[in-house]
Design a protein around this nucleic acid. Structure first.
Lengths: 349, 349
DNA sequence: AGCGATCATGTTATCGTTATCATCAACAAG
DNA sequence: CTTGTTGATGATAACGATAACATGATCGCT
């Protein structure tokens, strides 16, 4: 225990969490030295550092980063907003972000919108209040106010999972429409002609509507009928809703050869329902999904789908973010990164 | 634009984000009044509030909560640590937490450990640096240092998904062992006698090992063989690993009547693999899972499993947290809340 | 020996908000 | 006409850390 110039002696009173000054007193140094000792790559002598470390352990001191960030003007936060954490495509993206942030001293602040732009707007504001050093969004559809806040925030903004026509700042994504077109073309080349589409009522899920639009576009180009579209349920549609939708489809267009679904989850529901009804897949009806979820590779028959590298989207978005934050010293990243997608042909088509 | 006592005039220079003082100047009030106007339930006259709101919009001002929380000693954070965000059981819990936090002004700071206590320890420290007002953990297994930090943090700590023998503070969970025992008993009552178990190599996943222990316990009590245990892969085991594990099981103990799996995901993999091999479920072999994931209700045949109300665990944990934070004025919550579980019998057994 | 560079540490002044106390006006109750 | 209460606002001082600058001390090189 040490006397200090301000006359106080010893530790702070119990009950109150210790501050850096308490540590400093106990180690017989100034707070600034403690601050230095707690940061990598700053000059503190070995002996001093040891005394400080000991004081920290004895007091159970934990750095208060909220105070530090006010002073340093670096919060160490990156915000990410995804539609849903229960969707493994998006949680893969979140995982990609976290993993790419590992070791950078940046922490992920995650929020989800339930596919609602209004909720997104609220979240954007809540996030910006925390002064993140960058923000990663899903898709390019925002409320006007949300967009304005993002533009004025003065931090890098990355839109993902999409290629918006008029991006706010940077983009890591792919064209959901083009991906679906590719799937249609691939299957048409195998001889399928009567395609059906299963998706949600489209208003909320912009990626879903783009996939549907791609479906229609590709069929029109190929001169095939493009009207067999079932919109069922509020996006994101569940396995169960996929099952119900395929029933509607088979009632309305019994001779449908192949059902494309907005995601693997609904596709799986459809697949199981068909089996329940004694139909053979792909002989009686073929089914394909979108997203290459774990389930697609494992179900029986294994499901044809489109892999879109969700994890990679997250990784690259976070990478682009850190590059931008680290400033123009490092090479400035491209404004738009297009991530790949590919058709995975399996047994269901 | 207004002159103020400190001689400065007008807005801050462009490029810099506006502060509360900039808003105050523009609205012709003090910063304190702006602060009040931005908080619910404080006395600000209607006219003043309108001027302030206008100034906020004109400047595009966003409150800096990191500065505010330093002053008010309330960060508005709740930390939650889960093993994985890609597991829908845990992301359901996270969703329960977020939903229960809605409207309380508290925001969720989420982290995941990949089932590693070392990673958990790092995360605990990283979270505590942000001074959360409470912390929610998964399970009761922590490193000694992690546990110490939690005990000293001076905030409510809630352990979930488990009923630790020696809880740190509060608990919302159930006995994974007892749940598995119940499943065994239910199936034994239907006449099954030769049970097999599929799980991961257990070191990391404590909930997994408790389930396995419950499996063994129940069979021993019933006087049935309890040695048919396949440990395959690092937890959490995937669908694919479930498929491979069931193959090992059938090789080693071809007359197994029912395979219980550590989770629905591995159970689903096993189910599909059996179908691929032309086996009929449940006639040739019965399969049951754990967790009542969406997939269990939708696959064909529908899967018997245990529902454990993941979402409810999150909700109740968050509820308990907010009650504790709001202080002893409100009724103090129970220290231990046991959440229910129930066997869902479906077609796979 | 002289001089600049690097190291180890301390002092001071913020960062942007909110708690607290103070002030003054308006108004109700006695 | 007091006196107390409530409402609306402002001034000031934290909150706990770090940036920026300052001070000696040490060291290597000419």
């Amino acid at each position: 225990m040490t006397k200090t110039s301000d006359g106080k002696v010893g530790d702070s009173k119990a009950g109150e969490a210790p501050t850096m000054n308490d540590v400093a007193r106990r180690a017989g140094v100034s707070a600034m030295t403690v601050s230095r000792a707690m940061k990598e790559g700053s000059h503190v002598s070995k002996a001093t550092r040891e005394r400080i470390t000991q004081a920290i352990n004895e007091l159970g001191y934990v750095l208060d980063q909220s105070a530090g960030s006010l002073s340093s003007r670096r919060t160490g936060f990156v915000a990410a907003i995804i539609p849903s954490i229960n969707n493994s495509n998006f949680s893969d993206t979140a995982r990609g972000i976290t993993d790419a942030l590992e070791g950078t001293g940046l922490q992920l602040l995650l929020g989800y919108t339930n596919y609602s732009v209004e909720r997104e707007e609220e979240l954007i504001e809540a996030m910006l209040r925390r002064r993140p050093e960058g923000i990663i969004l899903t898709g390019g559809a925002h409320t006007p106010k949300g967009r304005r806040m993002l533009e004025q925030a003065g931090i890098p903004v990355i839109e993902t999972w999409d290629t918006p026509a008029d991006p706010i700042d940077k983009v890591v994504g792919f064209s959901n429409g083009a991906a679906m077109e590719l799937l249609v073309e691939t299957l048409a080349a195998k001889g399928y002609e009567r395609f059906g589409y299963i998706g949600g009522t489209t208003a909320r899920d912009t990626r879903g509507s783009q996939r549907r639009a791609g479906f229609v576009r590709a069929l029109e180009r190929l001169g095939l009928p493009s009207d067999r579209v079932i919109s069922f349920g509020v996006p994101p549609i569940s396995m169960e809703q996929g099952a119900q939708a395929v029933v509607s489809m088979l009632e309305r267009w019994p001779d449908t050869q192949v059902a494309l679904c907005v995601s693997d989850l609904s596709a799986f529901g459809a697949l199981m329902e068909c089996q329940r009804r004694g139909m053979r897949v792909p002989d009686d009806i073929a089914i394909a999904g979108f997203g290459d979820y774990e389930i697609a590779a494992c179900c029986h028959p294994r499901m044809t789908t489109i892999n879109v590298d969700c994890y990679g989207i997250g990784r690259q978005a976070a990478l682009k973010l850190t590059q931008t934050i680290q400033g123009p010293s490092a090479e400035t990243p491209e404004r738009i990164t297009r991530t790949g997608f590919r058709v995975i042909e399996r047994e269901s088509t």
